[in-house]
Design a protein around this nucleic acid. Structure first.
Lengths: 145, 145
DNA sequence: TATTGTTATACTCTATAACTATA
DNA sequence: TATAGTTATAGAGTATAACAATA
C-alpha cells in the first residue's frame, strides 16, 4: 500500500530555487558573523545588541526573540555587560523583571555594526528599483504574507 | 571632513527586502533544525549526513564545505559514526586520507531527512511556475551569478 | 500558585595549537 | 617539508531541571 501523502516530487525549477535560497542563507551568515567578529562579538551577542539598540527589554523577551531558552540569555547578556555594552536595570513596575538596555558605548557599537551589515548587504544594489519591488513581492508571497 | 565612502543610505524598499531576507533565513533554520531534531540530529550533523549521502569524501573536504576547521569535523563524524549512520574508510590512493561515507542506515536517514525538508520548503509551492522562474533569476542576480 | 531570572549541569560546535602518520 | 587527520584545550551557545525572589 502506497502512503497516502507522498511528498510531491519537487521539479527541477523548485530545486534550483531551494538551492539558491540555501546559498543566500549561507552568505547571510557569513557576512553577519564577519561583521560581528570585526567588533569581537559572536553572532548571538550581535543579535542581542541589535535588538536592545532598538529598545530595552526584559530578559524573557530577548529569549522569545532569539527562540531560545531564557537561561541562555543570562550568559549572553553577562558577556555583553562585562564589556560595558549592555546593563541590567530594574523594572519599576515588576521587581522580578530585569530590563536589559544598551549603554552609550553599546549604542555606538550597534550603530557601527549596522553600518557594516548594510554595506555587506549591498548586493541588493545590483538590482534596479523594479527588480527589488518584484523580489520583495515574491518573498512576501513565499513567506505567506 | 566627511569620510569619502559613506555607506549609501539604504532606501525603504531595500530595507524591506533586507528584512524579508532575514525572515527567510530565520524560517530556513527553524525548519532545518526541526527536521534534524526529528531524527535526533543537530544541524551540523544533518548537514554532514546530507553531504555524504551525495558522495563519500575526505574529512578535509567536509570542513571546507562546512566552512569550519578540520578538527571540528572529527567530532561531528565521531558522533554520526557512533550512531552507525556514517563510517570511515581508507583511501586506497593516499593512506593519510580517511573517507567518510554513509552506511545503509545513514542513507535511509538522509533520505527521510530530505523528504522532511522538501515538505518544509513547500512554501515555494504557493508560487506559479512563472513566479518561481522570476524568483530564481532575481536571486541569481542578487548573488552575482 | 505562577512567573522572572538565575544557577548547575551536560552536550555540541567552534577555533587554536600541538601531535602522528603519511606523502 | 608539507599534508591529513587527530587530540587537547578553552570558550560560547544550547536545553533541562531546580532554585530564590516576587507577583
Amino acid at each position: 500500500m502506497a502512503p497516502r501523502t507522498d511528498p510531491p516530487r519537487p521539479d527541477p525549477l523548485t530545486l534550483e530555487v531551494v538551492e539558491l535560497i540555501g546559498e543566500v542563507v549561507s552568505r547571510y551568515h557569513e557576512e553577519y558573523d564577519e561583521a560581528a567578529a570585526k567588533h569581537s562579538l559572536t553572532g548571538a551577542q550581535a543579535r542581542v545588541l541589535g535588538l536592545l539598540s532598538i529598545e530595552a527589554m526584559p530578559m524573557r523577551r530577548i529569549a522569545r526573540k532569539l527562540k531560545c531558552e531564557p537561561s541562555n540569555v543570562t550568559g549572553i547578556v553577562d558577556r555583553l555587560e562585562a564589556r560595558g555594552l549592555v546593563e541590567r536595570q530594574p523594572d519599576p513596575a515588576d521587581r522580578r523583571v530585569k530590563l536589559a538596555a544598551v549603554t552609550e558605548d553599546g549604542r555606538r557599537t550597534a550603530a557601527r555594526l549596522r553600518a557594516s551589515l548594510d554595506f555587506a548587504r549591498e548586493p541588493l544594489g545590483e538590482l534596479s528599483d523594479d527588480e527589488r519591488t518584484a523580489l520583495r513581492d515574491l518573498l512576501k508571497r513565499m513567506l505567506g504574507y
